Every structure is written in structure tokens, then in C-alpha cells.
Simulated assay, not measured.
Amino acid sequence: MSVVVWIVEATWPACVDAARTHATADADIVLLHVTTHDVPGAAHGAFAGLLGRGHPELDPGTRMENLAAASAQQLLRAAADRLGRPCQRTERIGRVEREVVAAAEGADLLILARDGDRTHLGPHSVGPASRFVVDHAPCPVLLVWPEPAPGLTTMPPRPPRPPHHG
């Protein structure tokens, strides 16, 4: 069994705990973190546009890339420690939702957490990137709550029934 666990800053403990609970003892577990290239890319562009290209050592985008890589490594290390068993740690850079889907190719299970409005049951508890992943994953998906799920009273009301003509 191959399990990919999407590690995101705010919700990773719940995903790791789900892997500990649901992955078989012999499963190959991949802890996956994806860093978007948007922020460092914007910093590179702003630097080039505003200050020119004469001093690349001053480019803030490079510093942001280094900080993002260090943060990802630290997060993956913490997740591996919490998992408490051998695993592979993978870092990717790109469009987050597409990188997660690509990383799940060939996996038997993908684990991710709800990242939207977690105060109510319903579709808004899943953010846009996670919705894309759920909709496009090439394998079964385990979608977990990062904290206890809200009660059934938070479920959106039933839509009104159209009148029956007949």
C-alpha cells in the first residue's frame, strides 16, 4: 500500500494522525509538502521591475525561496517525528493543487484535511485547492477534520422543495 499525506501548515497533525490510524503497518508513506511559486515569483518580478537586474544578490525572491524551503523541511521533519515510522519526505514547488494530484499518481490513498470554514458541516469546509485535489485525485481520498467535526446542527438547511404539479 502506498499512502500520500499532504502536509499543510495549519492542518498537518490531523493528516499524520489519520495516516497512523488508517495506513497498514507495511504501507509506504510519503509526506508531501508543496510550496507555491507565486510569492517568490512576485518578489522576483517586483525586484526586477523596480530595481533592475544589476544586483541579483539583493533579490528578495531568492531569500523567500530559501525561507520557504527551510520551513517546508522543518514541517516535514515535525510530521515525520509525529508519524513515528519510516517514511519518505517530498517537497514540491508549483501550483499546489496540481502538484498534489501529480504526487498522488499511483498511490493507493491520499490523505488531506479540510481547510475552509471548519465551523460548519458542508462544502465550504473545503477550500479551493483541496476541492480541486478531491475532484481530480487519481486514487481514493481520505478527507479529515483537523479538529473535531462540528455538530449536525451546523449543516446547511435543506433547500425548499419545488411545488408538485400533477
Rank of each mutant, 00 (worst) to 15 (best):
P148V: 01
A137I: 04
H164V: 15
E147R: 15
C139M: 08
P162M: 10
S130N: 15
L152I: 06
D135F: 01
H124A: 12
L152F: 01
R131G: 03
R158T: 14
T119V: 04
A129S: 15
V126Q: 01
L143Y: 03
V126K: 01
D117E: 15
P162W: 07
V141S: 02
M155V: 03
A129M: 12
A149D: 05
G116R: 06
A137F: 03
P162T: 12
H124N: 09
S130M: 02
R118S: 00
D115E: 11
P162D: 13
P148W: 00
A129P: 03
D117H: 11
D135C: 08
L152R: 10
R118C: 10
P146A: 08
A137H: 10
P160T: 14
R161N: 08
L152T: 11
V141D: 06
P150C: 02
P140M: 10
V144T: 05
S125D: 05
S130D: 13
P138M: 08
L152E: 09
R131A: 10
F132H: 15
P163T: 09
P160N: 11
P162G: 11
P140L: 09
P150E: 02
D135N: 14
H136V: 09
W145P: 00
T154K: 01
P162L: 14
D117F: 01
P148R: 04
P159L: 12
A149M: 13
R131K: 15
L152W: 03
G127Y: 06
S125C: 12
V141F: 06
T119L: 11
S130G: 14
T154N: 03
R158W: 06
L152Y: 04
P138Y: 05
V134F: 10
A149Q: 13
P163A: 15
V133C: 06
G116D: 06
E147P: 00
H120R: 15
L121D: 00
G151I: 02
H164P: 01
V144E: 02
D117M: 07
G151R: 10
V141R: 01
L143T: 07
P140D: 08
F132G: 01
D117W: 04
H120Q: 13
P159W: 11
G127W: 00
P150Q: 03
V133T: 11
G127S: 14
P159D: 12
P148L: 00
P157R: 15
R118H: 10
P148A: 02
G116V: 04
D117V: 05
E147N: 10
L152A: 14
G122F: 00
G127R: 09
